[in-house]
């Protein structure tokens, strides 16, 4: 052992001023792998992206279908795209609570003490979460197809809508990542996350046409980022058109990342 350890004491060596881009990416992927292994060992982490889309799609379609669109089948183009946005949002909310719980454990002390990019421990799990959004989006679409949903956008449109949902979930997860670095408890992140999630999902055209809402509420619906995502998904999946809504949805998602990713890293590093 002495022989092994003796090679460990090297004081005079070149030091890097900061992590490079390549290193940051590789560190992020390593952290993603850690999150992935943990995910596979805690299957409860898949409840919200498996049971929820199955249950909500079937439930909402059969309950509201007749009332809103006359029959279940003609409600499907509305509800499937709505549920897609809702699941993306719920799945991304879990990011915040998990990060908070994770940060309270000893291993984060080591991450902080390692010469690695500060964003890696935050971005890694977000990358691994793409799998969760992918499962949620796939299941929702499959349930819809089984119930008789025949998207007008064809295979290409559906795939584009699927990808947009995953991108939206990943982008929105940065809001909850930030909450995770700011709030003190996982419970707090969960509570505040719910308060953000419910208005965003229900004050949107996810489940009902916005024209049925009062005027003043429609103003909020128009600026709700979830509305942008839903409109874009509908254009892609139901019509197969790449409209301005799609552009706005992408811009909106990118803006969320541009604001909340640096905020998260800042608040995480400040707590060191």
């Amino acid at each position: 052992m002495a022989a092994l350890i003796s090679t460990y004491a090297v004081a005079d060596r070149p030091l890097k001023a900061r992590p490079g881009v390549g290193e940051t990416i590789s560190q992020t992927l390593t952290m993603a792998r850690r999150a992935y292994i943990k995910m596979m060992r805690n299957p409860e982490q898949f409840f919200d992206v498996t049971i929820q889309p199955l249950l909500f799609t079937a439930m909402f379609a059969y309950i509201f279908g007749g009332a809103i669109s006359g029959d279940v089948k003609s409600y499907l183009p509305t509800i499937i795209t709505g549920i897609l946005a809702q699941t993306a949002l719920t799945a991304s909310m879990a990011r915040g609570t998990q990060l908070r719980e994770d940060m309270d454990k000893g291993v984060f002390d080591r991450f902080k003490a390692l010469p690695i990019a500060r964003i890696a421990p935050l971005a890694g799990p977000a990358v691994a979460d793409l799998l969760r959004y992918g499962i949620a989006a796939t299941l929702t679409i499959v349930v819809g197809l089984l119930m008789g949903y025949r998207p007008g956008g064809g295979v290409g449109g559906v795939l584009a809508g699927w990808a947009l949902t995953i991108f939206a979930g990943w982008s929105l997860s940065w809001i909850f990542t930030w909450l995770g670095t700011v709030l003190k408890t996982a419970g707090g992140v969960q509570g505040l996350g719910m308060m953000i999630m419910f208005p965003l999902t229900f004050l949107s055209p996810a489940f009902v046409p916005k024209e049925t809402m009062p005027d003043w509420l429609q103003h909020f619906v128009d600026v709700n980022p979830v509305t942008l995502v839903i409109n874009a998904t509908r254009d892609l999946m139901n019509a197969g058109d790449v409209t301005m809504s799609v552009v706005w949805a992408l811009v909106g998602c990118a803006a969320v990342v541009a604001i909340f990713a640096p905020l998260s890293v800042w608040s995480y590093s400040k707590k060191l």
């Binding site: 000893g106 002390d109 080591r110």
Partner: peptide, 12 residues
């Protein structure tokens, strides 16, 4: 750094 409480990942 070796901390007072083991800073390794419990699930790994």
């Amino acid at each position: 750094v070796t901390g007072q409480y083991a800073s390794v990942d419990e699930n790994l």
